[in-house]
Computed example of a mutant assay.
Amino acid sequence: MPRRRPGALRAHRTRHPAPRTRAAPPPPRILGLSATTTLAVHRVEATYPDVLLFPGATSTALFRYRAFLIPGRRPLYPRTSVCPSCPGCALDDVREARDTLAEVLRRLPPRPAGELASVLAALDGRYAARTLPDPRAAAEGGAWWHGRLGEGAEGW
């Protein structure tokens, strides 16, 4: 008895496949990160919602961190945000923006975390070079970027 070819069997099964559609458009790209890392970041923001992580928090924090480190030679002084309890306004303080990036970095899978870490390493070097250490903050502990001299509040 003749046998049907495997291709003929597969063609019969997949004659009218369901079209591939997306329920939602892809998330917007984060400047300076690959599409894979951007997707991983958006998954982290959707999976672990809290005060630091909300949809778009990483993009906003990275933009704020880069904007603070504009090219120049004079020392920079981070400022406290006017409304630190509001999630969006808290990112006006570059130290809070860096806290958000550290939280995302901690929760990312290894490969996207490595890409984000390399972007942050370059920005951290510029931040350390352009800000001055605060001798009083050394006793308080916390992340190293909180131990830099700051001035006043943002917008005051």
Rank of each mutant, 00 (worst) to 15 (best):
R29P: 08
R29H: 03
I30W: 04
I30C: 09
L33Y: 00
S34R: 01
T36C: 01
T36E: 10
T38I: 01
L39M: 05
A40V: 08
A40N: 09
V41N: 06
H42N: 04
H42A: 08
R43A: 14
R43F: 03
V44A: 14
V44Y: 03
E45T: 04
E45K: 03
E45S: 03
E45A: 03
A46C: 12
A46D: 15
Y48L: 06
P49G: 10
D50L: 04
L52A: 12
F54Y: 15
P55C: 10
A57N: 03
S59F: 01
S59W: 03
L62E: 13
L62R: 13
L62S: 14
F63H: 14
F63Y: 10
F63A: 15
R64S: 09
A67D: 07
F68K: 04
F68A: 00
L69W: 10
I70P: 05
I70K: 08
I70W: 05
P71I: 02
P71A: 12
P71V: 05
R73Q: 09
R73P: 15
L76G: 10
Y77S: 02
P78W: 06
P78V: 07
T80A: 15
T80F: 13
T80H: 14
S81I: 02
S81M: 03
S81F: 04
V82Y: 11
V82K: 14
C83Y: 07
C83P: 00
S85T: 10
S85I: 04
C86I: 06
P87K: 09
A90F: 07
A90V: 06
L91V: 12
D93S: 14
D93P: 15
R95D: 04
R95C: 05
D99T: 13
D99S: 13
T100R: 13
L101D: 09
L101M: 10
L101E: 09
V104C: 15
L105N: 07
L105W: 09
L105R: 14
L105M: 07
R106F: 10
R106E: 12
R107S: 08
R107N: 06
R107Q: 11
R107C: 05
L108V: 06
P109V: 00
P109N: 00
P109C: 02
P109W: 00
P110W: 02
R111Q: 13
R111A: 15
P112V: 05
P112G: 05
G114M: 02
G114I: 02
E115R: 10
V119P: 05
V119H: 04
L120K: 02
L120S: 02
A121G: 08
A121H: 06
A121Y: 00
A121R: 11
A122L: 14
A122C: 11
G125R: 10
G125M: 03
